[in-house]
Amino acid sequence: MKRILAISYYTFRQNVRNRVYYVLFIFTLIMVFVSMLLSVLGGEQPMRILLDFGLVSIEFFALLIAIFTSVTTITEEVESKTIYLILIKPIPRWYYILGRYTGILLSVWTSMLLMYAFHFLMLTLQGWHPGPDYLYAVISSSLKIAIISAVAIFFSVFSTSTASSLVFSVFIWIAGHFSTEINFLTGKMEFLPAKYSVKILYYVIPNLQYFNWRDFLSTGVSFFRWMPVAVVYAVAYIGVFMCLSSVLFEKKEV
């Protein structure tokens, strides 16, 4: 356990110093830009727009950091050979996978937290009254990011090219949001083999709509209706991908 934590902390340090700061900087710029744009446009409902722009861009930037670091982490380490120095230590290989994953997640979550704090501050300064909805949006976005990072780690072990793992991960992200529509489609299909294969696809791809709370803010649905089960779902889903990655990585030659 301590050794997994050591890898996790090492990954965290590596990422935080490298990429995260740039992204945070760009996020801040965008938020300031959007709020300036809004004051020029003089739009009605500026708070809503600022809220949504913030929540979406935080998630988007977190997605960028998560996917890029997850996908490049193994290939980059193989190329620079730093991975050898970890793999020749007397540790099981799945320590590496789990350590990397938790380290990446930790750095992405930290950057998200910073962005949320900035965003929250900006909204309150403009006289917005926060409700629990904001917290729910933060929680669900973080889970979404946790899932997609696990998927991206899996692809990076599975595939030899960074580009293809990147494309696969982005595909899963999009398909994950589209899953409601996929399910809807299966209801309309009459050709059974197609119906069942699409249905299987629906269950294999993570349903990210469960964690899309920031899109349901004013819809009046209850967060607690499905979220406790969705958390179990997320953890198990991540577990599946960690196990798959470990099994594959066990046999990987570097």
Binding site: A6, R13, Q14, K81, L85, I88, K89, P90, I91
Partner: peptide, 30 residues
């Protein structure tokens, strides 16, 4: 743990200090 290995043309992440890395590798060695 019986083996110490030096790779060809070793490389380390530039952001760490020598000591930090050695502590890290020692921990991994158990």
């Amino acid at each position: 743990h019986l083996i110490g290995y030096l790779p060809e043309l070793p490389y380390f992440h530039k952001k760490f200090t020598g000591k930090e890395l050695l502590v890290f590798y020692s921990k991994l060695s158990g």
